[in-house]
Amino acid sequence: MNLTEKEVRHVARLARLAISSVELSEATQALGRVLDYIDLLNELDTDAVPPTTHVEAIETVWRQDRVVPSLSPEEATANGPQVSSQMFVVPKILDGGEG
């Protein structure tokens, strides 16, 4: 499968990476080579094979609904690059933000 710069730019946006045009062309090439290599998997017919999401045979691990002490707001925000009123400050959000 061939990878285009347009696709890489789209993926970079999804991943919130502001990659430069040089990086874009390098990445397109490098990823293209890797994906060419990965095409190898298409030799295998896996239609009837179940996927492995967890290698272990364990299931239904849950805990009791018991409160554990939280961090203090000071501890919680101690690493924050910008903090105000014990909350993390983020710059203004345009366009609904998610997009």
Partner: peptide
Amino acid sequence: YDGVRYGLRVVGDDLIHMYQNTRQ
């Protein structure tokens, strides 16, 4: 690693640019 709660933050005009600059 989005520059909000810990670690590096590189400023940006708005949220999405802060995200992109930080991660870049």
